[in-house]
Simulated assay, not measured.
Amino acid sequence: MKLRTLLAVFGVALALTGFTLVAAPGLASTITLDEAVLVFVGLLGVLQGVRVAIARSRTAYEQVETPDPEASQDLPTPGDEFDEMLATAGADRREREMRESVRNRLERAAVATIVRTEGCTEAEAKRRLESGEWTDDPYARAFFTGSVEGASLFDRIDLRRDNQSRYHRWAVHAASEITRRSEGFDA
């Protein structure tokens, strides 16, 4: 409905109410001013509701389309870079630079872990690492000392079953031991 139509309907309703009250004066005396205002406001509310309902029924329905969710990304797993370095260092004996890089990274991680978990100085941590006092795993110890001590003959034979180089096996043991000690420490 347009505003003019609403005003016309409202005017007609007021005129009819006025004529009714003039024609029957006794009816006017039964209605108090408070009731008249309340009826008037109620009628305005009903008219406004009808107007909004009519306007909404004439409005075109629009549906919003949601965009497609983002495609998931394949992110690298932490440690993949180190695993690739270790695989490259262990696969070719001429890759001395890669082996040295792996050794330096593991040494830095081991020293930091020993300092944090045992509360000693960096110099003391390096001494423990070089002497092999930092772990009970003979192969992790061997990565930094260069020789396997404390492993049984059966362990040495069992260790040789896979096709990895000695350097690779010792580096994996060292990395596993560093991780185990680091994760096992409650700060």
Rank of each mutant, 00 (worst) to 15 (best):
R127W: 11
E122Y: 03
T121F: 11
R105F: 06
K126M: 04
G132D: 07
A112E: 12
M98Y: 06
I114R: 14
S101T: 14
M98V: 13
V111M: 05
E124T: 07
A109T: 07
E95P: 02
T121Y: 10
A110D: 02
I114P: 08
R105M: 09
R103Y: 15
C120V: 12
R103T: 12
N104Q: 11
R108G: 15
V102N: 01
R96M: 06
L106V: 07
A109Q: 13
E100K: 12
A110S: 08
A110R: 01
E133T: 05
E118Q: 14
R116Q: 13
N104H: 11
R127G: 00
V102G: 02
M98N: 09
R99G: 15
L106I: 09
N104L: 04
E100P: 06
S131R: 15
C120H: 03
E95K: 15
A110I: 00
L129Q: 07
K126G: 03
E100T: 11
A123K: 12
L129H: 09
E118P: 07
S101L: 08
T113G: 03
E107K: 07
A109G: 00
R108F: 10
S131D: 07
E100F: 04
V111G: 01
V111F: 10
T117Q: 05
C120Q: 04
E107F: 07
E130L: 14
E107I: 03
A110C: 03
T113S: 07
R105V: 12
K126N: 12
E118A: 10
R105D: 12
R96Q: 09
A109Y: 13
E97I: 04
E100Q: 15
E133A: 08
G132W: 00
E107H: 06
T113Y: 09
S101Y: 01
R105G: 11
